[in-house]
């Protein structure tokens, strides 16, 4: 079995001969955030301080759009760590959010958590989606609407 897999891989390797070159080509630029370099400016960049974000005005979020944002790997990718209804290949490090809407969290509290979980737990593994502009404020409002709809 394994032999076959490897053999297939060799053949695949021939087909994808250009893959290695392509791999190195398009390196996205994240130099606006801290990096590990001893010499580049990003190596000296400060991490953005935790921000306790107040929710202003009504939530005005769209749960269906929020679900898309939460699931998309290149947007929220909340499924990397959380179980959410309808999501494929969920992660297991964060709490199951399948019934988050029944846990009694307020809208403002939920918004503040997804904006920057470090304000609740400084050592959290969850990315500061708002502070680091992973998602826009409207996207986060949508995500909160989605979370609160999970009964």
């Amino acid at each position: 079995m394994k032999r076959l897999v490897l053999l297939a891989a060799v053949l695949q390797g021939l087909t994808f001969a250009g893959a290695a070159a392509a791999q190195g080509a398009a390196v996205p630029d994240y130099s606006a955030f801290p990096c590990l370099s001893h010499t580049l400016p990003c190596g000296e960049l400060a991490a953005r301080e935790p921000v306790r974000k107040e929710l202003e005005g009504p939530l005005d979020g769209n749960a269906a759009r929020g679900k898309q944002t939460a699931f998309a790997r290149n947007r929220g990718n909340c499924l990397a760590c959380h179980v959410m209804p309808g999501g494929s290949q969920p992660g297991s490090r964060g709490p199951d959010l399948s019934h988050f809407g029944s846990t009694g969290r307020s809208t403002a509290e939920t918004f503040a958590m997804v904006w920057d979980m470090r304000t609740v737990n400084p050592e959290t593994l969850m990315p500061p989606f708002g502070t680091n502009a992973v998602l826009t404020e409207q996207e986060l409002r949508d995500v909160v609407a989605f979370l609160l709809s999970l009964k």
Binding site: Y30, F33, P34, C35, A47, C81, Q89, P90, G91, S92, R93, L125, P127, P128, N132, A133, V134
Partner: peptide, 20 residues
Amino acid sequence: GQLNFACASCHVPGSIMGHK
């Protein structure tokens, strides 16, 4: 980085290591 992870966030016990 933008996600505020360390290598350790995924590769030490208590982190994401061993989790899906």
